[in-house]
Design a protein around this nucleic acid. Structure first.
Length: 446
RNA sequence: UCCACAGUAGCUCAACGGCAGAGCAACCGGCUGUUAACCGGUGGGUUCCAGGUUCGAAUCCUGGCUGUGGAGCCA
């Protein structure tokens, strides 16, 4: 009985008789010769059936296989540079035995082009496609690398609830649900709970889905996204920027080490990834506004001039973020935003309360904001006053206000959007490919 | 919520006021080295829905539905 192997390990089995279990990715019919691409989730291998090498029934089966039929193939591993579709490339299996598990019905996703709507309707099948396979493998490594770095640097993962009694920030729209006759909301951030946990464990993070019910319909928005949120006691804004750039540099280097095949499949420009190394540029909001004004003045395109229009105090739109990020070859931090356009809990800058100790990280190539964070207000009177000002219910935040009574300390934290980071690292046109099953304004199926 | 565009065979599209078509996929046949193979053949339609204009509507008009791209908001 041949040994069952993973296709990813095929190089270790040259000359041996092996068994591969998987699905028919593609088949080329050459008469007495059949080229069958079999994928098993770990890779793809070209399996060759030659009529004189097997009994009639087996060859008949091989020559009838439909796309995505499930099969168990046994045969001898050979090196062949013509096996270009194989992953890893250059290996093929000369079929001796072939067991059909199920002959697939006509498969909707052909090797030709398809539209977005069709592919998203068939997302449960689309994930089998090579490009999606590559992206989702990179996503998994990104998630692992990010949490691994935090784990290795003294952070404790402390999970925060998804069902919550109140908003975590005053600005965004929440999904509300019925909680035994009372209203509850799907968490939009774990941050407030992180602040409680940070006081118990010092350095913590949470990694879970966050939910935003905003009617956003852009290439950067999901209703449900995976949110990585570290929070650290006594950390300053500057130290936090150090953490962010170390964390991302590490994650990108892990992906470059591990996923050469996948990056080649999605045709990612590796030069763009190689420059993702600490330190990243750091500019103030003030400077960013000046840069935008200068850009708007320089450009001859009236439309672009209009898009880049900005006055101090206004938040950046997506054209602004793109224009700023384009000036750098790696992500750029923009810090000290106006307090008025940021969340209520952000610490004002000493002697300049109109701006706060906040920082966003803008990815290059127009991918926009991938992290946002700040030092949090730790003075009990000030946080109380901010809650008063924006008019949110004090009862719902009583526990949060408690944190400022019992050993309050300066602290900071940030949130990173996993899908936006995947989209940027993979150079994707839209965030919908960066998550297995995207939840969007017009889509919750499949 | 606003702006723009689109909806025709399983898929990607053409036909733009006058017989609804092609490529791919499927099915049948041929081929020993294919790489989105190639060659020959077969089947495949409520032209998103409802009204209207017209001798005649996939095509023009009105309304609706669905989707896509962008804006705002955000990670």
């Amino acid at each position: 009985m041949a040994q069952v192997i993973s296709i990813s390990e095929i190089a270790d089995h040259v000359g041996q008789e092996v068994m591969v279990r998987g699905w028919v990715y593609d088949r080329t019919d050459k008469g007495k010769l059949q080229f069958i691409q079999v994928r098993d989730g770990s890779g793809i291998v070209q399996c060759v059936a030659y009529k004189p090498d097997m009994d009639e029934a087996t060859f008949e089966t091989a020559s009838k296989l439909t796309q995505e039929s499930s099969v168990i193939v046994s045969g001898t591993v050979k090196v062949n540079e013509k096996a270009k579709k194989s992953i890893p490339a250059g290996y093929e299996i000369g079929i001796q035995g072939l067991q059909l598990v199920q002959m697939a019905e006509e498969y909707p996703i052909t090797p030709k082009e398809h539209g977005v709507e069709f592919l998203m309707d068939n997302r449960h099948l689309w994930v089998r496609s090579l490009r999606q396979w590559a992206i989702l493998r990179i996503r998994a490594t990104l998630a692992r690398a990010l949490t691994e770095w935090l784990d290795d640097h003294g952070y404790l993962r402390v999970d925060t609830p998804i069902l919550t009694p109140a908003a975590g920030e005053e600005t965004t729209t929440l999904f509300s649900i019925d909680y035994f006759g009372e209203s509850a909301y799907l968490s939009q951030t774990g941050q407030l709970y992180n602040e409680a946990n940070m006081m118990a464990f010092g350095k913590v993070y949470t990694f879970s889905p966050s939910f935003r019910a905003e009617k956003s319909k852009t290439r950067r928005h999901l209703m449900e996204f995976w949110h990585l949120e570290p929070e650290v006691a006594f950390m300053s804004l500057e130290e936090m920027m150090d953490v962010e750039e170390q964390l991302l540099s590490y994650a990108v280097s892990r992906i470059m080490d591990k996923h050469q095949h996948e990056l080649a499949i999605i045709e990612r420009d590796l030069g763009k990834l190689e420059s993702i190394k600490a330190p990243f540029a750091r500019i103030t909001y003030d400077e960013a506004v000046e840069r935008l004004k200068a850009l708007a003045a320089q450009t001859d395109d009236p439309e672009q001039k209009q898009l880049l229009q900005i006055e101090w105090g206004e938040d950046f739109g997506s054209p602004h973020e793109t224009a700023i990020a384009e000036q750098f070859d790696r992500p750029v931090f923009v810090y000290h935003y106006p307090s008025a356009i940021k969340a209520f809990y952000m610490q004002p800058v000493d002697g300049r309360p109109e701006v706060c100790r906040s920082v966003d990280l803008l990815a290059p190539e127009g991918y926009g904001e991938i992290t946002g964070g700040s030092e949090r207000i730790y003075d009990p009177a000030l946080i109380d006053q901010r809650i008063e000002t924006i008019g949110i219910t004090r009862e719902a935040y009583a526990w949060y206000l408690d944190l400022r009574k019992y050993g309050s300390v300066p602290h900071a934290g940030f949130g990173l959007g996993l899908e936006r980071t995947v989209t940027w690292i993979c150079g994707l046109p839209h965030v919908r490919e960066a998550i297995p099953y995207a939840r969007m304004l017009n889509r919750k199926y499949p």
